[in-house]
């Protein structure tokens, strides 16, 4: 017997904003585990190793746009994960009611909050 095809086309299937927030929350969680945490541990190690290494890092950070962007990217991922996570917990504890409109509105609120915090972070770090 041949294998039956299964239709799943993520570009065609409509997902509500709460779904996009939830999926991106998981992706950001994976990025934190595989990228942000190891990078932060490495950075922490460099910064605390000696005064010289601290100075060298600050010098490189100020001169390299690539490093500054990468650090900013890491911070933004972490912020996004925390904000989307708080919304998730509010829903799990039934503080945000489990209706489609409440879910969409809370997802939108989380995105606007993230945009505001991201803007402050970008202004603060650059």
């Amino acid at each position: 017997m041949s294998i039956k095809p299964v239709y799943i086309n993520l570009f065609k299937i409509q997902l509500p904003i709460s779904a996009l927030l939830s999926i991106s929350h998981r992706v950001s969680g994976m990025l934190i585990f595989f990228m942000v945490l190891p990078f932060s541990a490495y950075l922490f190690n460099i910064l605390l190793a000696s005064q010289d290494s601290f100075g060298l890092f600050i010098e490189t950070y100020n001169s390299s746009i690539f490093l500054r962007t990468f650090v900013l990217f890491n911070v933004l991922i972490f912020e996004y994960h925390v904000i989307a996570g708080i919304r998730h917990m509010l829903m799990d504890f039934h503080i945000v009611s489990e209706t489609l409109s409440a879910s969409s509105n809370s997802a939108l609120t989380a995105l606007v909050t993230f945009a505001a915090i991201a803007l402050l972070t970008i202004l603060g770090l650059t």
Binding site: P16, S18, A19, S22, E98, T99, S103
Partner: peptide, 8 residues
């Protein structure tokens, strides 16, 4: 994970 597509 409460993505709400079922309700949608």
């Amino acid at each position: 994970h409460g993505i709400m597509n079922c309700v949608n």
